[in-house]
Design a binder for these strands. Structure first.
Length: 1059
RNA sequence: GGGCCUAUAGCUCAGUUGGUUAGAGCGCUGCCCUGAUAAGGCAGAGGUCACAGGUUCAAAUCCUGUUAGGCCCA
């Protein structure tokens, strides 16, 4: 690395790796290194011939600043391509920008101080769109900085942009495919509409304008004219219908009932009314039920409509079935007016009912409508209700308070209004969509047939047009006779228009000006006014990013990369990009465009609340990474908690990742480099065969292969949470068990230990590289490449490690974990006895179940770790010292005894444990008495534990026992004092700034006779431990300049100097 | 109003096919260990596993309902 702070030392290639490291500074260096070496490009070149593994980048809109939440999906979009690249796949990574859409227009409108579409038209569409074009790329640099800083490798040099002419023409081509199949059609769409402003409102605008108002709610009689109860003993029978918008009754078209709800006919003696049974109480007192029908049996009963004010194409005015009908309020019979309600329109369309709309676009009734002609729609309620009352069809009238949307600009009540709109008939490919979804792997799986599957099963046609300015123009031209031509490219348009249009900007207003003679009738064809939903743009990226099929080479690129192996975005894209990608792919190619999709939860502030300016809890992404390192942030995004759930990020959790994972890993590598350098060891020097290495080496080799196997599986299954658990646990046990227990061998330059740790760190570095690409690169450059120059020049150009299943030794794993367990219990026993670890003890006794798993090598490790002379079986203390207890193993017993389990377990607990133990040991079975009968139980059905009676410090947990012999002989006492002296001098060495390998000269004096005795007997051992070439038990010569100190508790005074 | 997700220690979260005494980290207290470490270990305090029913010999785990929060949609 260019300006690395690490340096080669002397003749050895081993670099000095500092134990402390500034991760953010390290990352800046690594970024420079990648930049200088062109590492990303090399990784693509190196794998160019490999099997393709395709990833699609979901395009962000760059008209806002990137936030910390943007890092989340980008981590997933980086980790798996890096992993696949290390596995030899060719992974193309093209960035993209989403350029069109209403949010862009709204932002520009706000900048210009505009107040609606009229202002834009006055300003000029060309000028307005130019502003949008500029706005949408305003923060591309900020996104690029974020992308670079976090180590997301994606090609930002050649991104696709949804506004580029090549992209737009590709979108046109796909729309033409859909139009030619008759699946892109014009129809009515119910839009929230402000009649004063004359404009539709977006959902976002609508949400801002809710106000609580009091509307008349009316219960109206609709007399039946057909069906089994139309005539009831000469008395009229009516459907009772409830509505809060009496003005829509003028255009009543049908009445909807729920197919599965029970409806009743009730009479008060004068008349009969039909209502849903759960809402019978709406009628009041004195009504008796005479008949009942399930909703689905009422289908197509005819009735007489409430007003005869407008002409109506028949057939209409009958009962229809609709699942959305509820029995929460009203009567369970819902008035349908498809021009003014989205649900109404869907339901009525299914019955082919007409859409009758007597209201002008300014919100007034058409002038020729009797009674209410010319009236504003809301104002007409009063006259209409009065008329209903006068004619005796009004059953009840009550004021109804509810939230109703108003225009956020002018507070005019919003009208839900049928406007012509272009639809893609996705309902026609619903079965194909369900089929494609079945083939898709969702992470987490619950989304597949949960939130997303529900959306597909309830699929509705996609209203794809927008009456706006900045978007892909809908490429449909038509003449007065509605002969439509959907144009698939500028070349095609040029042919129709008879001139070269290849350089035309395919946006409004330029394409609006192009007209041609209708190919069918010769009359003038003009473009329809709309642009398309920007979601269609982004859902087209699998082919449009290559300009398919027009751009040169686009066919090859497209065919090679469709469908994608992997996409990932946050959960809010289920009905957004995840849907539009699948829908467009299925419509155009009859195949969804992705196979695996990771669907992430949202990123919150550390307090679990949404990050917002209002709360002042926003964490800016780049400062966050500069404070904690990008690797830590990446690790958080991938491995902390479940990525499928909302998660809070902040300094606490990031600091923990740095300390527990990144620095522990770094430090283990630094430790290895330190002792490999001191031993002048080389990986090429050859090491003893694994089978001849020490037990901990053999164990670590096995665990390393296990880790490769498990992480490889986790990567392949997109399970980053599991990766985090596997790697962090491995790093912890590597540092705090393997290295800790092996330190003496490293000090001695043991080739087996050095080779084992070297190999393990190599593997660990590779398999962590996709997650934490910075620190692993630095370790690769500073620890591995200097000593093995033939290695790949970057860890990201190296191969993912391989494993050998036959090397994974489960028995050895069990044995080592038992050893660790015994150590844990031994420490606990020491703490309980209040005997410090530096005081050697004679022996530890271990329960017989545990000791069966421990060979001599492991017993030695335990003895050393616990500072005891030997570890022996508990039974060696003499049989009568041991006390047994027995418990039933519920899980085992449950299989055999089911209901009797607790009784048998009780019998085991009540039995003579010593006899039970003896019998199990002798024959493998034992007999207990259950309800007077003998029952035979086997060894695995009984949990035995044993403990000595007294004079020992004993810890007994979950069947395992460790006992410490607390007798401290004079020899042990002195050995303990020697350990204290060693400890004191090691501390002094460290404080005086000596290197770990420096040799020293030492003088010691004591004021305590017992200590003096110990110094005399253990002088050689002390000298060896503290690397003293010369140790004198006396005062030093008066002239020397020395480090000195005293340890009062011991009565020790020391002087030392570098030898 | 509908659908989905979530609810476990003060905080952040694990918890396999139901099974013995529900775990970890952070934080707190005490002690210990340290020739790489910003570490590590042992112990202590801290839990009505949101609530209410149900299934079962046995429920944090399976079922039903309720409450609260989140997301999407109306």
């Amino acid at each position: 690395m260019a300006d690395t702070p690490t340096t080669a030392t002397g003749s050895t290639p081993w670099r000095h790796i500092p134990a402390q490291v500034d991760l953010p500074a390290l990352e800046r260096d690594v970024l420079d290194h990648w930049d200088g070496q062109d590492t990303f490009a090399k990784s693509l070149e190196q794998t160019a011939g490999g099997k393709p593994w395709t990833f699609f980048e979901g395009p962000p809109t760059a008209n806002g600043m990137p936030g910390t939440h943007h890092i989340e999906a980008r981590v997933f979009k980086d980790v798996f391509p890096r992993y696949r690249t290390m596995k030899g796949y060719s992974v193309e990574r093209k960035a993209g920008w989403d350029c069109h859409g209403l949010p862009v227009e709204v932002a520009v409108e706000k900048e210009l101080g505009f107040n609606g579409k009229k202002d834009i038209e006055a300003f000029g569409i060309a000028e307005f769109n130019a502003k949008c074009r500029e706005s949408v790329l305003r923060h591309v640099d900020a996104f690029a900085d974020l992308t670079t800083r976090m180590g997301y490798w994606v090609d930002m040099e050649h991104p696709y942009r949804t506004m580029d002419p090549e992209y737009v023409q590709s979108v046109w081509w796909s729309l033409k495919q859909i139009h030619d199949k008759g699946q892109l059609v014009e129809d009515y769409r119910i839009t929230p509409y402000c009649p004063r402003c004359g404009t539709g409102l977006s959902d976002h605008e609508l949400a801002q304008g809710y106000e609580t108002v009091v509307d008349p709610s009316v219960y109206v009689r609709f007399p039946l004219t057909s069906g089994p109860v139309a005539e009831k003993a000469g008395k009229p029978v009516s459907l009772l219908v409830w509505t809060t918008t009496p003005w829509t009754l003028v255009s009543n078209t049908a009445v909807a009932v729920h197919p599965d709800v029970d409806y009743v006919v009730a009479t008060d003696g004068n008349e009969s009314l039909v209502v849903a049974e759960p809402l019978l109480s709406a009628l009041g007192e004195g009504w008796t039920v005479t008949d009942r029908y399930v909703g689905r049996d009422m289908e197509r009963w005819n009735y007489q409509r409430p007003f005869e004010l407008v002409e109506f194409p028949e057939p209409a005015h009958y009962v229809v079935l609709a699942d959305y009908v509820t029995t929460e309020d009203g009567t369970g019979l819902v008035h349908q007016s498809p021009a003014f309600g989205a649900d109404d329109l869907i339901v009525c369309r299914a019955y082919d009912l007409p859409v009758v709309n007597p209201v002008e676009s300014d919100g007034t009734f058409q002038a020729d409508v009797p009674l209410v002609g010319g009236q504003f729609f809301k104002k007409a309620d009063e006259d209409l209700v009065n008329d209903l009352r006068d004619r005796g069809v009004l059953f009840r009238h009550v004021p109804y308070e509810h939230p109703y949307p108003h225009c956020w600009r002018c507070h005019t009540p919003v009208m839900y209004y049928a406007l012509p709109s272009w639809y893609i008939r996705t309902t026609q490919v619903k079965d194909a969509l369900l089929r494609e979804n079945e083939k898709t792997n969702w992470y987490p799986e619950s989304v597949k047939w949960g939130r997303y599957g529900d959306w597909l099963r309830n699929n509705i046609d996609w209203a794809v047009s927008r009456s706006r300015f900045w978007g892909t123009p809908l490429p449909i031209w038509r003449c007065a006779d509605d002969h439509q031509v959907c144009v698939g490219s500028l070349a095609e348009l040029g042919e129709l228009a008879g001139r070269d249009l290849s350089a035309t900007d395919p946006h409004r207003p330029f394409v609006d000006d192009i007209t041609f003679a209708c190919p069918t009738c010769g009359e003038e064809s003009t473009r329809v006014a709309e642009v398309i939903d920007a979601w269609y743009d982004s859902g087209s990226m699998p082919f449009a990013q290559w300009g398919y099929p027009w751009a040169e080479g686009s066919k090859e690129k497209f065919e090679k990369s469709y469908p994608a192996d992997f996409i990932s975005e946050a959960i809010d894209q289920t009905r957004g990009w995840f849907y539009t990608l699948m829908a467009i792919g299925t419509l155009v190619f009859d195949e969804s465009s992705y196979r695996n999709v990771a669907c992430l939860g949202h990123i919150m502030a550390e307090d679990g609340r949404k990050m917002s300016k209002h709360l002042g809890n926003i964490l800016e992404p780049i400062p966050l990474m500069d404070d904690h390192s990008a690797d830590a942030v990446r690790w958080f995004m991938a491995c902390s908690g479940s990525p499928w759930k909302a998660r809070g990020i902040g300094p606490n959790v990031l600091n923990e990742i740095v300390r527990k994972v990144l620095l522990t890993y770094w430090n283990t590598a630094a430790f290895h480099a330190l002792y490999a350098r001191l031993a002048d060891w080389s990986p090429s020097a050859g090491a003893p065969p694994v089978a001849e290495r020490s037990v901990l080496d053999r164990w670590l080799v096995s665990e390393t292969h296990r880790l490769v196997r498990d992480t490889d599986e986790a990567y392949a299954a997109y399970d980053t949470q599991k990766l985090g658990v596997l790697i962090s646990q491995f790093v912890d046990v590597l540092s705090n068990w393997y290295v800790r227990r092996s330190r003496r061998r490293f000090w001695a330059g043991d080739a087996g230990a050095l080779a084992t740790l070297h190999e393990t760190l190599d593997v660990l570095t590779r398999l962590m590289a996709p997650l934490t690409p910075f620190v692993t690169e630095r370790v690769w450059q500073d620890v591995f490449r200097p000593v093995t120059p033939e290695l790949a020049e970057s860890v990201h150009l190296a191969a993912f490690p391989q494993y050998d299943e036959t090397v994974i030794d489960d028995r050895l794993a069990t044995h080592v974990s038992m050893a660790r367990r015994v150590v844990e219990l031994g420490r606990s026993a020491r703490a309980e006895a209040k005997v410090r670890t530096r005081q050697p003890l004679g022996r530890a006794l271990v329960g017989s179940a545990a000791i069966a798993d421990l060979d001599d090598e492991l017993l030695r490790e335990i003895a050393e770790e616990l500072n005891v002379g030997s570890v022996e079986p508990l039974s060696s203390a003499g049989a009568d010292l041991v006390e047994f207890s027995a418990k039933g193993n519920f899980r085992q017993l449950g299989k055999r005894f089911a209901k009797q389990t607790p009784v048998v377990a009780g019998a085991i607990a009540a039995a003579d444990a010593a006899a039970l133990a003896a019998s199990l040991k002798a024959s493998g079975t034992a007999t207990v008495v259950v309800d007077g009968a003998d029952v035979e139980v086997s060894a695995d059905e009984v949990l035995l534990s044993e403990r000595p009676r007294e004079g020992w410090s004993v810890v007994n947990e979950q069947g395992e026992t460790v006992a410490l012999d607390l007798e401290i002989t004079p020899e042990l006492k002195q050995a303990g004092l020697a350990r204290e002296v060693v400890r004191t001098l090691q501390e002094a060495r460290k404080n005086s700034g000596l290197e770990v390998s420096d040799r020293i000269t030492v003088w010691l004096t004591s004021t305590d006779p017992e200590l003096s005795d110990a110094l005399g007997k253990h002088a050689d051992e002390i000298a060896r431990e503290i690397l003293a070439t010369d140790l004198t038990v006396s005062m030093p010569p008066a002239t020397s300049s020395l480090t000195t100190g005293t340890e009062d508790d011991l009565g020790l005074t020391y002087w030392l100097t570098k030898a």
